[in-house]
C-alpha cells in the first residue's frame, strides 16, 4: 500500500517538489515499514495519519526503515516521538533503522537517541 503525496512549492520562480512515501505492512502485530522522501511541516501530517492507524494496538512491534529519508525537521521528529510514546504506553516497541548521519545527529541532540531504539545506516553512520 503506497501513499504518495506531492506538495509543490514555488521558490525562486522554479519548481521544487517535496514528497513523502510511506509504506507500511502489518502482520501478526508486527509492523514493518519504510519511508522515503522528506519529513517536514508539509509532509509530516501524511506520516502522522499513517502511523496513527496502528498506535492503539497492544504490544505492537514496529520497525521503520528511514534510509530513504533525505530530510527531516523537528516536526517530523515530533511524529516519531508521539508514535513512540503511544506504542510504548501499550507495551509495544518501536525501532528506527537506516538513519543517515544527519538524522542520527537530530536524535542525538534531542536526547531521543538515548531513550529510543535507533540504528544508523551502515556506512552512513559516521561523520
Amino acid at each position: 500500500m503506497a501513499f504518495f503525496s506531492r506538495i509543490e512549492s514555488y521558490k525562486t520562480g522554479c519548481h521544487i517538489e517535496m514528497n513523502i512515501q510511506v509504506n507500511l505492512t502489518e502482520n501478526d502485530n508486527k509492523l514493518k515499514g519504510d519511508i522515503h522522501g522528506e519529513i517536514d511541516a508539509h509532509t509530516a501530517p501524511v506520516l502522522r495519519e499513517k502511523l496513527e492507524a496502528y498506535q492503539e494496538q497492544e504490544g505492537l512491534n514496529a520497525e521503520l526503515d528511514l534510509s530513504g529519508v533525505d530530510y527531516m525537521d523537528s516536526t517530523g521528529l515530533g511524529v516519531f516521538v508521539a508514535f513512540y510514546k503511544s506504542i510504548n504506553a501499550k507495551g509495544g516497541h518501536l525501532k528506527l533503522t537506516g538513519l543517515s548521519s544527519r538524522l542520527k545527529r537530530l536524535f542525538d541532540i534531542t536526547g531521543l537517541g538515548d531513550i529510543m531504539d535507533i540504528e544508523a545506516a551502515v556506512g552512513k553512520g559516521g561523520n
Binding site: V81, K85, I109, T110, G111, L112, D114, I115
Partner: peptide, 29 residues
C-alpha cells in the same frame, strides 16, 4: 533539553566549538 548546541567562539584562537550538554526534549519523560 534537546536543543541545538550553542556555539562558543574563542577570540584568541579564532576557533568555534559546540557547547554540548546532554538532555532530553522537554515534555517527553
Amino acid at each position: 533539553a534537546g536543543h541545538e548546541p550553542a556555539i562558543l567562539y574563542r577570540a584568541n584562537t579564532g576557533g568555534f566549538d559546540e557547547l554540548e550538554a546532554k538532555g532530553l526534549l522537554l515534555g517527553v519523560s
